[in-house]
């Protein structure tokens, strides 16, 4: 356990020692601060003017989705060359020549990347939360809890890309991870659009069933909708009969088992 924590620490320290990490974080926060401009505008929809709290509410939820999706991209980029870089700079050899199980090493590396990515996402969501609180005067209970829920998606992305990087070039591994998430966004968004009143009206004469593959595909986007339901206080309607939290927990376990199994057999 102690060695696992050491490896997590080394992973986190190595990433946050890179200036580019803080530059990216600062630029992201800077963009989020531009949101403040949205709250002071006068918006009119269907002849009714919207109050700033309503605007802030919708802007914050859109920003929540963008941040949660963007961090998945960052997690993929951080994970893609994690194991190959360790192989190239001899880190894996120096670590595994110590009394350290392979699973401890790879789990420590993956958890380290996940922690950094999650912290990055949480800071950005916290920024939105604070901006909304200050600019619109309305706290959004559940916003930070929703951010924590989305960390399951980040963990899935890290484990998936790390596993794939053992079988294919780094860039291809990142593309596979991003591709899985992109398909989930399209499929789940179409489902949730179909659940809306407009969608129901359009599909009234053409009731569409849910394809089988959509039922078993990683529910990354549904997870975000589920997280947003925490903010809105809505009842979440999942795609299919299994809740996306359970689906994603299953996929995280599957990806973790795949990574452990593949790395155990990997020649160093």
């Amino acid at each position: 356990m102690r060695n696992f924590l050491y490896i997590v620490k080394y992973t986190v320290v190595d990433i946050i020692n890179q200036k580019s990490f803080f530059v990216l974080l600062a630029v992201s926060i800077g963009f989020l601060l531009l949101l403040r401009g949205c709250y002071s505008g006068n918006y009119v929809v269907n002849g009714k003017s919207l109050d700033s709290v309503t605007v802030a509410w919708h802007a914050s939820i859109i920003a929540f989705h963008i941040v949660a999706g963007g961090v998945l991209l960052i997690a993929a980029i951080l994970s893609m060359n994690l194991l190959s870089r360790d192989r190239d700079d001899g880190t894996v050899q120096y670590m595994l020549s110590k009394p350290l199980a392979r699973i401890t090493y790879v789990a420590g590396r993956a958890v380290g990347i996940w922690l950094v990515s999650f912290a990055f996402m949480f800071v950005l969501h916290l920024t939105i939360f604070v901006i909304t609180l200050i600019s619109a005067g309305g706290a959004m209970p559940g916003y930070l809890a929703a951010s924590c829920l989305c960390s399951v998606n980040v963990l899935f992305m890290v484990l998936l890309v790390c596993t794939m990087s053992l079988f294919m070039p780094d860039f291809a591994a990142a593309m596979v991870g991003i591709g899985v998430v992109a398909v989930s966004f399209v499929a789940d968004s179409l489902f949730h659009a179909a659940q809306s009143r407009l969608g129901q009206a359009l599909l009234a004469n053409h009731p569409a069933g849910i394809p089988g593959w959509e039922m078993v595909w990683p529910k990354v986007c549904s997870m975000q909708y589920c997280a947003v339901s925490l903010i809105k206080g809505d009842v979440f309607r999942p795609l299919g009969s299994v809740h996306p939290v359970l689906v994603m927990a299953g996929y995280v376990c599957l990806a973790a088992a795949g990574l452990a199994f593949a790395f155990q057999r990997k020649e160093i």
């Binding site: 190595d14 020692n17 190239d88 700079d89 001899g90 880190t91 050899q93 120096y94 020549s97 110590k98 009394p99 350290l100």
Partner: peptide
């Protein structure tokens, strides 16, 4: 591997 020291060929280290 407790108490085992290893020097790899070509001295690869994390340069940072």
């Amino acid at each position: 591997r407790r108490g085992v020291g290893y020097l790899a060929e070509n001295a690869r280290v994390p340069l940072h």
